[in-house]
Amino acid sequence: MVTFQLSPEQEALRNLAHEFSETEIKPIAPKHDETEEPAWEVIRKAHELGLMNVHVPPEYGGQGLGNLEGCLIEEELAWGCLGISGSISANNLALEPILLAGTDEQKRKFLPWFCAEPRLAAFALTEATGGSDVAAMYTRARRVGDEYVITGTKTFITNGGVADLYVVFATLDRSLAHKGICAFIVPGDTPGVRAGKKERKMGDRASHVGEVIFEEAVVPAANRLGAEGQGFKLAMQTLDRTRPGIGAAAVGVARRAMEEALAYARERHAFGRPIAEFQMIQAMLADMAMNIDAARLLVWRAAWLQDQGQPGTAEGAMAKCFASDVAMRVTTDAVQILGGNGYMRDYPVEKLMRDAKITQIYEGTNQIQRLVIARQLLKSRS
């Protein structure tokens, strides 16, 4: 039976996340957008409230929440600020490979570490010469006895350079393409691991995004996730699992923009009446509401499918792609409704528009999402 009713526990979780976003994130978002520094105090408070590492099972100190619950949290935190939300939710992305492929020993060693203290993790996949083309990576892992030596540079890594732990993807042999890629758990204090350039971004400025450089970093073979050559598959499985969360964050940004535009339209007068009475403005607001609602339903469906044990590859790509496109349209229209004020930093919609753009790019560009969807369609009919 299909139902759109959240359980009392889910409603309580969503309300908790929204109250936290309203009181702790929203007031400081403009400052961190200006300084481009992570909101460390908010990260600490989010950890105390149980809004971080939410998918870690109870036996390792986490809550063991499902993907749908994770999406409820991500929408509300991104409503307050996408960048601050991204610093927090990046842990979900980075720890997912350990949840998917980690041995019991690896899980016992690393997962409780994050549940006990407010630490950051990072998913180190992207390189300067290979974003969407993951199999073309240059970062190399060389086997030496019971260890691997990792050399290379990862770019555009959320929490990169400030994380306590990295899940790093490296190739044993570039000629093997995706079949040569391995995944490794690498503590941030490993000798040979250092921060590179911190990126200066158009939006999403409250999250720390930067290079991570590996210079002959030695990692025990016991830290490899899965077998040799399974890293590419693990990366794709991870992104399948986390894309609905990006969709949820995009919905949060779009929803906030619509709320700001609606409030402004009610207060702003032109030709002797509120601009909310003009049909052109009403049509823009109606389109915002319809698209946000449709995006949220796609996100919920994708997350629910995964919670039922289904891969949801196409559905996750649809949710991420559609929701992020909606966020870009809605924030652009919100700026338009506010007119000249919308273009000024005195109002939040210009930040929301800048933030929205990254949701169309990270964790797979929307062009890649459309390829994923198309390939799943063709596969299902073969």
Rank of each mutant, 00 (worst) to 15 (best):
H55V: 01
L77T: 01
R296Y: 13
Q367M: 11
E59G: 01
G62I: 06
I281E: 05
V212R: 10
A295M: 09
L51R: 09
T359D: 00
A39H: 03
V168G: 05
E69H: 06
E259V: 08
A303S: 14
H208E: 07
E363I: 09
R119P: 06
L338V: 10
E36A: 15
K320V: 10
H47A: 09
A283N: 13
E96R: 10
C115P: 02
W300L: 10
R224S: 03
N223E: 04
I43D: 01
L378I: 07
L51S: 04
N53Y: 02
Q360F: 00
V193A: 06
V349R: 01
M1D: 09
V162R: 00
D325P: 03
A261N: 03
L165A: 07
F322V: 12
G152M: 07
T129N: 13
F278K: 02
E147M: 07
R354T: 01
W113E: 14
L297V: 03
N223P: 02
A276L: 15
T151V: 08
A141I: 08
T3K: 09
R329I: 04
S87M: 12
F214M: 14
W304V: 12
F271Y: 12
D33G: 05
I88F: 05
G339Q: 06
A217R: 08
K201Y: 03
H269K: 11
P97I: 01
A195Q: 13
A46I: 04
I281V: 15
N53D: 15
Y148H: 02
G161K: 06
F322H: 15
A170M: 07
A141V: 08
G192Q: 05
A163N: 08
Q279G: 01
T171R: 09
A217C: 03
A124D: 03
L93G: 00
G70P: 03
M1A: 11
F271L: 11
E228T: 12
D204H: 12
R194V: 02
A183V: 11
A124Y: 07
N92F: 07
I25P: 08
W113Q: 14
D133Q: 13
Q310V: 11
Q63A: 15
L99V: 07
E147W: 00
A183F: 07
A261E: 02
K351T: 12
Q106T: 00
T3I: 10
G86F: 03
H47D: 04
G131T: 12
C182A: 06
A289N: 05
A356Q: 08
E76V: 08
E11P: 02
D355Q: 02
D325S: 14
L13G: 10
Q336F: 13
L120M: 14
S380D: 12
A327V: 09
M137T: 10
E199L: 14
Q10C: 04
V218E: 06
K107E: 01
G229I: 05
F271G: 00
A286N: 11
L6P: 03
E22H: 13
G309W: 02
A46D: 06
P274A: 11
Q306G: 10
N15R: 15
A319R: 09
E22D: 13
A227Y: 04
M290D: 13
S87H: 04
I246H: 02
A221E: 13
A221T: 00
E127W: 10
A122V: 02
A303I: 02
A249G: 14
E59D: 09
P191I: 01
I157G: 03
M353D: 05
L234E: 06
A265F: 02
L120R: 14
L371N: 13
R329C: 10
